[in-house]
């Protein structure tokens, strides 16, 4: 089975506190630690497991700048066979539809049976996978938490829905699936693994190689535009306990007692 996994480099929220920059045009990007979007890592692991079970290949692809090569290499160290970087000035500031347009162009150059994305990325839009499927005119399922290969033409897919229940579906191939966290346990990648793939060639495809007209992507092609970043109003907010540690603990214990928090 030929599998393509779309991955994105995002600021790692476990490592960073995210805040707007001084003029609110972006988040503060100095000193940010970046990594592979959490959901995408599960998608790559799933693809590798399918390939190891039934054969085929796994390609990872990202639309981003030259720094994104790093995440392609990381996922190749996990076991992906091939990485492709889609990069062009014209792609900058694409909205979700723009990203899907870029990915679609690459996908149509190849022949994939299964295309995986993460369920959502850093801005929580959860849109690229569904858009991609609609553009390619193939079926889609989101929030996938299990995949079982039936044969060359069909798979059985579980979607995680409300309450943690699983909705089982049969889907015809080719299709696009967006992967939910927890579907597997992504393998660990060590420095040695990364070193092994350090010299592998990663092709870079630009807008003209992909036959993408620049006005359909990037800033020019976006109908949805971010105006600014700001910190949410504190609203009512919590009473933040202050003082020495002993004082804080004393106040907290009192509050717990008076609210029935200590039996």
């Amino acid at each position: 089975m030929e599998i393509l996994v779309c991955i994105k480099m995002v600021p790692d929220t476990a490592e960073n506190e995210i805040e707007p920059n001084s003029d609110g045009t972006d988040i503060e990007r100095d000193d940010l630690v970046y990594s592979v979007n959490e959901w995408d890592n599960y998608a790559v692991e799933e693809a590798i497991q399918i390939r190891d079970n039934i054969g085929g290949s796994v390609t990872v692809v990202t639309a981003g700048d030259e720094n994104s090569e790093e995440i392609l290499r990381r996922e190749m160290a996990m076991g992906a066979d091939k990485g492709i970087l889609l990069s062009d000035e014209a792609f900058l500031n694409s909205d979700g539809k723009g990203i899907a347009t870029i990915l679609r162009a690459e996908i149509e150059k190849g022949k994939y049976d299964l295309i995986l994305t993460g369920a959502q990325a850093d801005d929580g839009a959860a849109q690229v996978g569904g858009m991609l499927a609609a553009m390619l005119d193939i079926p889609y399922a989101s929030l996938v938490s299990s995949i079982e290969i039936i044969d060359d033409t069909r798979i059985k897919v579980g979607r995680e829905i409300e309450g943690g229940n699983r909705e089982m579906n049969e889907i015809d191939l080719p299709c696009v699936l967006s992967i939910q966290t927890g579907i597997n346990e992504p393998r660990y990648v060590g420095i040695r693994g990364i070193r092994k793939v350090a010299s592998l060639d990663i092709p870079v495809h630009n807008a003209s190689e992909l036959n993408i007209s620049p006005d359909t992507v990037g800033e020019a092609g976006s109908m949805v535009k971010k105006i600014d970043y700001f910190v949410p109003e504190p609203g009512e907010g919590a009473e933040i306990l202050e003082g020495s540690n002993e004082e804080i603990i004393e106040k907290l214990v009192d509050l717990l007692k008076s609210n029935g928090g200590i039996k």
């Binding site: 805040e19 850093d122 949805v224 535009k225 971010k226 600014d228 700001f230 949410p232």
Partner: peptide, 18 residues
Amino acid sequence: RLIRQEFSGQVCTHVSCD
């Protein structure tokens, strides 16, 4: 014009859409 959140609610954005 509308409001969204990013990074699990750590920051908000104003968004405009035609």
